[in-house]
Design a protein around this nucleic acid. Structure first.
Length: 306
DNA sequence: AAGAGTCTCAACCGCGATGAT
DNA sequence: CATCATCGCGGTTGAGACTCT
């Protein structure tokens, strides 16, 4: 099927929009509204394709767009929704008033994704990256036993349809990552670390050379969708089935990736951010601390997002 | 100060979905 | 049912901004 050309092959302009073009588009939409993007640029006197006009409007010119930094609530919402929806940016954006899918996608790729990786969490599966532990066969066996409760492992099978219908398909891209997302408390138990089996001093582990210096090893208490989770949700998200509980908890990294009592080594200390009024990279990263603690309520109907 | 490297994000591209005929 | 036009989405790109050395 032939596609409508969009670009200078049709004598149409590409690239950054000028203020004049923006004004034309805004004026036209204010007068006539938008509907037929195909004919809009011609009617508006723009040398652009409809696709470009739609993108410019929806991602930049729309009056209800909220610009500026993402708030903590927004960031947490993005992470939570991403754990459910995967890269369904438009679905995520639909629950973040004023934010566009493009903006969220960019923010994910440039900020959140990096932070999760730094914390040793696979940003695709939202699970610990066991591959980064560079497991030798011996360590592999040991760690699997430590992370996974074998008595519950058999339960994983029954969740396969749900997991496959979700973003878990992407796991093939991130090879050998932990493939057991926690969709509810029961499943969470599958990956509940067995603290007793874990070395008393996690930092005694010698991280393999494959690890970057940014890598932060996961302590045994790693609890992703912990059942004691408390979080902050944007109350404006009326369609969400998430239930805000309490916004008063500490957001320090330690509240999420707690260091074993016998190993006080800093993981990525950023506790100071709480006292800082400035908006720093550390503060941004701190937003991600809570993402490791949320649970997906049982009543959450994921199909709503699909 | 300057060049290199890195980051950010607006914009583009290509594909699938959907609706009209 | 097949074809076509259009829309919307997700992945990717690249220019400019920023940071580092």
């Amino acid at each position: 099927m032939g596609r409508a050309l969009c670009g200078d092959k049709n004598g149409l302009k590409k690239g950054p929009w000028t203020p004049e073009e923006d004004k034309k588009l805004i004026d036209y939409i204010q007068k006539h509204g938008y509907g037929n993007w195909r004919t809009l640029p011609k009617n508006a006197g723009l040398q652009r394709c409809g696709k470009s006009c739609r993108l410019r409007w929806t991602n930049y010119l729309r009056p209800d767009i909220k610009r500026g930094r993402f708030s903590f609530e927004e960031e947490e919402t993005i992470i939570q929704l991403h754990s459910i929806l995967g890269n369904k940016w438009s679905a995520i954006a639909a629950r973040l008033p004023g934010r566009t899918d493009n903006e969220i996608k960019n923010y994910w790729n440039t900020h959140i994704r990096k932070i999760l990786l730094r914390m040793g969490i696979d940003p695709v599966t939202h699970t610990p990256r066991l591959d980064l532990l560079g497991l030798s066969s011996l360590h592999n066996q040991y760690l699997i036993q430590s992370f996974v409760n074998p008595e519950l492992l058999h339960n994983v099978d029954q969740y396969q349809p749900l997991m496959q219908s979700n973003h878990c398909h992407a796991q093939v891209e991130e090879t050998q990552t932990c493939s057991v997302p926690f969709y509810n408390e029961e499943l969470q138990l599958v990956m509940e670390p067995n603290v007793n089996q874990f070395p008393s001093n996690f930092n005694d582990y010698v991280m393999p050379s494959i690890l970057t210096e940014d890598y932060v090893p996961l302590p045994p208490q790693y609890n992703y969708y912990g059942s004691d989770y408390q979080t902050v949700m944007d109350p404006s998200i009326e369609t969400s089935n998430f239930h805000p509980i309490n916004s008063n908890q500490s957001l320090g990294l330690g509240s999420v990736v707690s260091t074993p009592s016998s190993s006080p080594a800093p993981l990525n200390s950023n506790s100071a951010y709480l006292n800082s009024s400035s908006t720093t990279e550390d503060e941004t990263e701190s937003y991600c601390t809570n993402i490791l603690k949320f649970e997906i309520p049982d009543i959450l109907d994921v199909n709503d997002f699909m």
